[in-house]
Structure formats: C-alpha cells, structure tokens
Design a protein around this nucleic acid. Structure first.
Lengths: 337, 337
DNA sequence: TTGTACGCGTTATCAT
DNA sequence: ATGATAACGCGTACAA
C-alpha cells in the first residue's frame, strides 16, 4: 500500500527520471506528461520517501537540539522558537536532553550524527572540548544558544549576562533598595552562574553599596526548589534585607512561595526581581518583575543562523541580544514614600 | 572526513559484509578480524549512517508526535514522558504542533510519513476521519494520548474525564461547599470540554445540589487568560459562590491571579480546585489542590504502547488510567468549623 | 522531451 | 569465516 516512484512511473507510462523531475520542479517535461503524472501521484497517494532522498542529497532537513534538561521552563521556550522556524522551513527537530552529563551528551552527538542531521543547536550548556572535537570532525554545523565560547570558532546567540544582572540590581537600587541579597544558581555553572553574580556585585560597587558573603546564597541549581530553600537561608544571614535578585525566574517563584509560607508579603515586605521572563512570569502572585531575555526570539535567531550556515556554507556572526526590565508587581518602590 | 563502511572495510582488509556483521553482532567472523575491524572503526571514528539503514530496514527509530500547541504546559509534560521512553529505546522523536488546524495536521502527517516514522502518537485532539484515513492507508501505527475514539480501531490512553470531574466536584462538596461554580474550557472541545462539565453536573445532582446556567462560565480555551477572565464573570452571575472547579490547572492559575487582583483570598474566601496536576501546581500561591492526571506516566505509557505495536506488529489494549485528588492549599474545609 | 544506468551507505542473500 | 552482489527509493549525468 506504500508506493514508490517506480509505481508512479509505471502507472503513468513514463520513466522514474521523469517523475523525479516533476516532483522536484526540474525542467525537462511537457505539460501533458506533467498532468498525467500528477494525476497518478494523486490517485496513488504517493509521497516521496525522504529517507531515500536524504541518502542521496546529504540533506535530511532535520536539525538536532541538545538541551540540558527538558523540565526547565526556559528550555521549553527556546524550543518553541526553534520549532517555529524549522517547521516553517520544511525541516524538523530532534530534541535530546543531556542532563548535563558528558557521556550522555556524547551519545546523543553520535545519535545525531548517525541520523545525519543537517545541523545542531547546542543550548544552555558549556561546549566542552570533547563535544567540539566530535562536531568538528564530523563536520556538523553548530550554533550555541544561551551559552558562548571563546575557545572555539562557534557562533552563538545570548544576552550579556553580567550586563543584564547589573541592570536588574540597578533597578532595585533605583527603586530605593539598599539591602539587597541574591539567590544565585550554581556558581560553578559556566553558562549562567558566575557572570550574574559578577553583574550583581558590579552594580553594588558602582552605587557604592557594600557587598559581602551575607548578601549571597548560592544554591545548586536554577530551579524552584533552589529558590524555596534559598530564601530562608538568606533571611537568616541577612535579616535587614528588603530586596532580592533571583538568578532565574524559577528561583524567583521559589522565593515567592517561600515568602508566602513565611508570611512575608511581596512586595510590601520584600521585593523580588527575577531573570528570564518566562511566559508564566505574568501568572505568578504577585506578577513577577524580571529581566527579560527574549527567549522565543533567541530560539528563532539561533535557528535562522544554523539554517543559514547549512544553506550558504558560510560562517555567521554571533549575536548578543538585548535584555530589558519588565516591571510588574513584585518590586516595591521606596523612593516616593 | 566522514567515513563509510567501505572505508572501514578497505583499511581493515576485509569486505563490507564482514564489517556489517561485526557492527550488528551477526555471527560469522573470527575474534581476530573483529578486533582488527573494531580498531579501525575506532581510529577512523566511524559511525554507521542510520539513513542508509533506514532505507533498507524500513525502521527509522523515529516516532512522530502530533500535538495541538506547544505552549500548553500539559503538552510539555506529555512530551517529557514520551522522550524519556523513546530515548531509552534508542529512538528519537519529532514533535509537530498542529495548532488544531486540519490542514496543518494533514501537512504534518505527510511530513511524518515522508520521514518514514515508525509510529505516531496523537495527543489531546480529536482524531478526524481524514487523519485516520491517511494513517490507515499509509499503514503507520498510531496511538492516541489524552483523547479517544469510538469510531476507529485505534488504541488510546487517557483518564476518564467525566469520572475525574465528578471526583473533583465531590471533593469540594465533601469539604462542605454547596455553592460551587465551574469555569469550563471550550464546550465544543470534543476531547475535554463536555465530559468535564458532565462530571460536574453529575456530582451536583448526585448530592442533590441545584445546577443551573449561573453555575457555569464557559471560556474559549483551557489557558491562563480563560481563567483570568472567567472568574469575574462567574462572581457576577453567582455571587454566593464559595468554591470553583477549573477545567484545567492553567484556568485555575488564572482564577488565582484574578482573585488576587480582586482582593479575594484563596482559600479563605474562595476555594479553587484545578485539573491536571501540572508540575507547577505546587508552585502556585497558594499551592493548588487539583485532580491529578499522571501526565508524564501517560506519555510513557503511550510510548510503550506504540513501541510494542511497532515491534510485535500486534494490536494493544487501550488504557484508562487512574486519576486522584492531590490536596494542597487552595481549598478550604468548611466541615469542621 | 524522455529514458538508462549508476550511485548514495547499508543490510541480506548467496556463494565460496 | 568471508566476500561479491542485489536491493532499499531516489536523483542525476549522460545518452537518445
């Protein structure tokens, strides 16, 4: 019941070459034969086998996406942008979650190579030497999303984390806050850990505010629980605090939740600013003020970049995208009081 | 730089047949040649081309997933379950979002056929005749997830919506609530619309509580905004209300948000129960009491089913999975007061 | 304008 | 135990 180009050719009394030309719009056939063939295709419900096509064209119209974990909401938003563009482009996507595990990553890299993906988008994770070597050897185009590298000639799209963290902290300061803490993610995290901390410190110093150990709580990740656990610790070591900068929106949600159970009102007693602007940031109580990364657009941009590399076989420029503060209701303004 | 089985064969001084046997563990070679070949494979960094494999084996180890839209959180959780199992099984997934659009769905169905997916998981959407005919003609195995069909012989996995809605309503009643409203999604929605309403009504009747028009607000979808808009309308047409059943967690979050801006305390003044138990249900303020569908497990089950169909070429049984109430803090207990 | 025949990288069949 | 070769479905150079 599954027809091939041969079946079409036979039934239309032409050669497979002619059928091939017709379905690929290559010149070399008359109007009449075209009509006849098209009709046969319709009758048979024939669709070309893109596996066979891929074998000969060396293009599978599939791109691979490597993400640390699927459960993180930020990843979901990136993927939205990625899938939008690829599908618009007649391509599809294979998503692999590496769980930040080197072995798993290598396994997936091999899988993607074996499936002959046209390119890879590598998301929110450090591009280790081992990964790069493999990708380079296999000559798979790659672009980095929300992570960068100085070591290898690989284009990326991301925001300037340190700058964005500076902005967030500055926002708090300009709202009159002086006692500001930070719940950071994993410090060791090359991608988002240290640079956000740096941005925070830089802002504090720039506005001549003291910074010390007590200003920080460094949790193991960027998730809800990290925020949930982080706030009590921060409050304990720094009771005077009036505002906190969360290194991610998910951390911020955890802080909100924690504050709720501790009967601390946000923003009356404690201001919270997040980082990411997940789509659910407007759904929290209170709606979360946060530093917006244009997540979906970033996914789109990375995809356009990889497609361009694939299509033109040329290098493309990395892109630093602009962040902005989205002011909602989780930060109290102390200045006009 | 990209090696084929021929390169390996040549360098190891054996035939490609032997190499093929070795990488596929088919008997027919000596220990020595095996070692030699394996070493060459290692040196060259050779990986078999699964496109070529797919062409001859008629197995691509890829399964297609059709979802209505990617932004819905419930879909994300299904996909988590699906990807877990497929990847564990050496397969990968292509996700396509149809936006509940018939034309787009057909387009993706063709895409998936052309990519020769081994099977399809069709999620949260009505299986229209046109879809079924295509899938049937192309002989692609399929299973339905969170949707069902009486019309066609297609296995599915879902919860009993009406029963679950009954349970949710009953839960409210047993907590002492009498004036209960419902914010339902789209009534026309074959998948989740009417049956949840039916369950609600059935429970009300069973406990001899009145039900009328004023008990319902029917929004256009199952999202946050639908809940956000629905609550004010419901409060207006039914001011005595003490509890509300939301047809989805996202609706419930909207209700929570709406209540917050209207300065209605949850659960002191208004109780809310949701439906789905999204992973963020525990992150809301207050944490959401809800009817749990085991979303990730459902995705896993559907995947196991499709894999079984693919592997054994036999039919499998549909599964109705158990729901349960997850009690958190959004429902007030009126009975012991 | 149209057809023949080879090749893409692999597996499977049949020899040897 | 090993090798030659057909086949998978398609695109394309070349021939007609």
């Amino acid at each position: 019941m599954s027809f091939t180009i041969k079946d079409v050719a036979k039934k239309a009394n032409v050669s497979i070459a002619t059928v091939s030309r017709i379905i690929n719009n290559k010149p070399g056939y008359s109007k009449e034969t075209e009509e006849k063939v098209l009709q046969v295709i319709e009758e048979l419900g024939y669709h070309p086998n893109s596996i066979a096509r891929g074998l000969i064209n060396k293009r599978t119209h599939t791109i691979g996406v490597l993400v640390p974990k699927l459960s993180s909401m930020i990843i979901t938003e990136f993927i939205r942008g990625i899938e939008d563009i690829t599908h618009h482009n007649g391509s599809s996507v294979i998503v692999c979650h590496t769980e930040s595990n080197g072995k798993k990553t290598m396994k997936y890299l091999q899988l993607l190579y074996e499936k002959q993906v046209d390119g890879i988008i590598f998301v929110s994770e450090e591009l280790k030497e081992e990964y790069y070597q493999f990708i380079n050897r296999m000559k798979i185009p790659i672009v980095l999303l929300s992570t960068e590298t100085y070591q290898f000639p690989v284009p990326y799209v991301k925001v300037n984390d340190q700058h964005a963290a500076f902005s967030a902290t500055e926002f708090l300061i300009k709202k009159g806050h002086r006692n500001i803490g930070m719940v950071s993610g994993n410090k060791e995290d090359m991608v988002a850990g240290q640079s956000r901390i740096n941005g925070f410190m830089q802002a504090m110093k720039h506005y001549q505010l003291p910074v010390s150990e007590k200003h920080f709580v460094s949790e193991s990740g960027f998730g809800f629980d990290d925020g949930r656990n982080g706030l009590p610790r921060l409050m304990k070591q720094y009771p005077d605090i009036t505002a906190v900068f969360a290194a991610s929106d998910e951390i911020a949600f955890g802080i909100l939740s924690s504050a709720y159970t501790m009967k601390i009102n946000v923003p009356e007693q404690l201001s919270v600013i997040g980082y990411d602007n997940l789509s659910i940031a407007e759904m929290s109580i209170p709606p979360l003020t946060t530093v917006a990364q244009p997540l979906v657009e970033m996914g789109e941009m990375a995809t356009k970049m990889i497609l361009e590399i694939i299509n033109t076989n040329q290098k493309v420029e990395s892109k630093i995208v602009a962040h902005r503060i989205v002011e909602r209701e989780s930060v109290r303004d102390l200045t006009n009081e």
